[in-house]
Design a binder for these strands. Structure first.
Lengths: 399, 399
DNA sequence: GGTCATAAATTTATGACCCATATAAACCGT
DNA sequence: ACGGTTTATATGGGTCATAAATTTATGACC
């Protein structure tokens, strides 16, 4: 018996309160009648619960009786809405080279956004923590809020993260990325894998119970949503596609670069191919250091054979991933997310052409994310909102 | 608003009832004090709920005051237990060549078991349905029960099965296997994939949140438990390892035999290898039709080179699967289930030797199931019990 | 402007539930 | 026989959800 649920008499009240609060988080303003339809409770009960929520600081009664001149008969209904001042959520994409952070209200409306380059290896864990706090403070300031307004912060990092927000202790890079943000930031903090958050963002954009979201810029990670829930694994390792290393029959040695994303692969392959390739290619005219994924993709669109070859190799890689995901997890849709997603279409085209059309088995749809470089940060906000919606009572409103 | 939960006044009582019932399903006999410790409710409440459950027919008060001569002081407690006559559950493994069925009481004690060969292709859907009903009737008769005693039947079939118990409409074999048992059998029926049920059985034997169970006799299927829950996919296709076909770099064409289990593969490979191989092998002395997986495994143990080669090929296949599952789903343990599991150890040994030991990444444990050919049936019973434990109130006790 | 219909809020009554406390019952050892 | 101990039962208080009756506010109509 923990003191909180001492009287199970209060349990029912709490259940009703949370249901009503979930409803309030969706609606702009609402009347008792609407809440009755949603929750199935009686008017008396709904009004009682609303009283409680107003007293607790979650709701406020909106006082514009005449204003809403909708042609209603009868006594005008009392109308409630979520208090704006209840608080905000913060999403933070704490990548290796960039931090991006967004403040949003409890309905998901973006109140502020900031992006900043960071040199993680120079900063170290403590430096990343401090940088994150500074950036969050700035964006809160932009939005006219203070740190104490934050009900929940969700942080995305490029590392496997278990349910407790921890990354494997033996991964030096992972420990650097998962820098212990919860000790530095105000309020409750949840840390999650960046690809998982991207998957949550994509799932919010276009709901589907079975999607794989590949976050594939510099590094490679996947967020897997199966049967509507995100897979994690005991060490947070779900979605870590090391199996790509064992593609070529050799089980025991991961292929070099198996953790590289498409962006990194396109760059590496292009730089090395320029030297060994003896055909005609526009890439040769570009200084080696300036060759990157976008240049390669653009060249391919213009018919450059070397670039087209690289697109084909990436497409084959993607098709292989799609087949594995579809067959092993019955995945409906594979989304390519991250900054590279805007230019990825040629790779998708080639991958689609490789998928067997007549196998009789369902094949996943391959699509590019519309969220661009913001997928992770948007997913962090979405994750924060979801957590609050699931258990509103565990977050205390500011009064 | 469905009529059942019309009055949310009764919700709390129902929650308490279900909690108490779950407790009763675990315990043999129990007192109010024990139930109080479990549920956190008051004595008065517990006794009230017990009254209700006795009236509903779930519980009975056990009347042996002096019998339990445990050195207790004070007034003897009233003791309750689950009514034996409440009902039983039935598990049915409706395979391609065999039916196996088990009746068990609500505590999982086996009350009867029967196994029977079937020729599914001769019988057709209707024949399989009728055969299943007949076998279930027999085993119920063995246990001294009738069809009306069955609270729930769970059936395992070798086909993908979605959450509604349906298999893909375009799969002729799958439609034959998933024969529409719910229309033939008495009481509520749930149909599930056989490998999923095997996974549930293994999970019950040795609890672990992340296990893959490979059911690999004649056909190949996997039951995946990730983060403690079983993956299904929208069409029930999770765990359908077609990706094995794209092993060899060719994305578009599934390898022949990619749906074959280890048992079938060992037999096929052995029969064809005997002809092409020109070294010394004991397998040559055996008539082609008598060569099967067990013979091959036994020969390998005795050092036969041809058999050892087959073991090695199977081991490599298993190692590849283990690497994919471990890297993609963070799987802790891979269990080989099915009738072949008793003899599979040499394959496991070889697979373990192929797994990279120094990769720094966690590798899954490879183990053979201890349930042998009964994994699916035991899983079906376990699944039935789990469903009853989860929502006891939806199953009506016989009074 | 007055009357009526309508819809929502409010009040009141009722029954159920859970808890806390008190009282009675049943068993133990001395 | 008599405390000591544990449990069952009874009673009162508090909270809650439902339902019915009542009040309040608004628009439509004459």
């Amino acid at each position: 018996m923990n003191g909180i649920t001492a009287n199970s008499t209060h349990l029912l009240r709490q259940i009703n309160s949370e249901a009503l609060l979930r409803f309030a988080l969706q609606e702009q303003v609402f009347t008792a009648a609407e809440a009755m339809a949603e929750t199935g409770l009686t008017r008396a009960t709904v009004l009682g619960v609303c009283d409680g929520l107003v007293a607790a600081g979650w709701l406020e009664e909106v006082e514009d009786p005449g204003a809403a001149g909708r042609g209603n008969k009868g006594r005008p209904a009392r109308r409630y809405q979520l208090r704006e001042a209840v608080g905000v959520v913060v999403g933070l994409d704490a990548g290796e080279g960039h931090f991006t952070t967004v403040v949003a209200d409890l309905r998901g409306r973006e109140l502020g956004k900031r992006r900043q380059s960071v040199d993680s290896h120079a900063l170290g864990r403590a430096g990343r923590r401090a940088g994150a706090r500074k950036l969050v403070r700035q964006v809160l300031d932009d939005a006219g809020h203070s740190e104490t307004d934050v009900l929940l912060t969700v942080v995305g990092v490029p590392a496997p993260v278990d349910v407790n927000g921890l990354s494997p202790a033996d991964g030096e890079f992972w420990q650097l990325m998962n820098s212990g943000f919860d000790s530095e930031l105000q309020g409750p903090v949840f840390v999650d894998n960046d690809a998982n958050l991207a998957a949550i963002a994509e799932g919010a954009q276009e709901p589907s119970a079975n999607v794989a979201t590949l976050l594939t810029g510099e590094r490679f990670g996947a967020g897997l949503i199966v049967d509507g829930s995100l897979l994690r694994g005991p060490r947070g390792g779900a979605g870590e596609m090391r199996f790509l290393g064992s593609l070529s029959g050799n089980v025991s040695r991961p292929e070099e670069g198996s953790t590289d994303g498409f962006g990194a692969l396109a760059r590496k392959w292009a730089r090395s191919a320029v030297r060994s390739y003896d055909g005609k290619t526009v890439l040769r005219k570009i200084p080696g250091e300036e060759i990157n994924a976008e240049v390669v993709f653009k060249a391919a669109c213009e018919g450059d054979p070397l670039a087209e070859d690289i697109i084909a190799r990436l497409g084959a890689r993607l098709a292989h991933i799609a087949v594995v995901l579809s067959s092993l997890l019955d995945i409906d849709r594979v989304v390519i997310a991250g900054g590279i997603s805007a230019a990825i279409e040629p790779v998708l085209d080639h991958a689609r052409s490789l998928l067997p059309g007549d196998s009789g088995f369902p094949l996943p749809e391959l699509v590019a994310s519309k969220l661009g470089a913001e997928a992770v940060v948007q997913g962090a906000v979405e994750s924060a909102l979801t957590r609050i919606r699931r258990e509103p009572a565990t977050f205390f409103p500011r009064t």
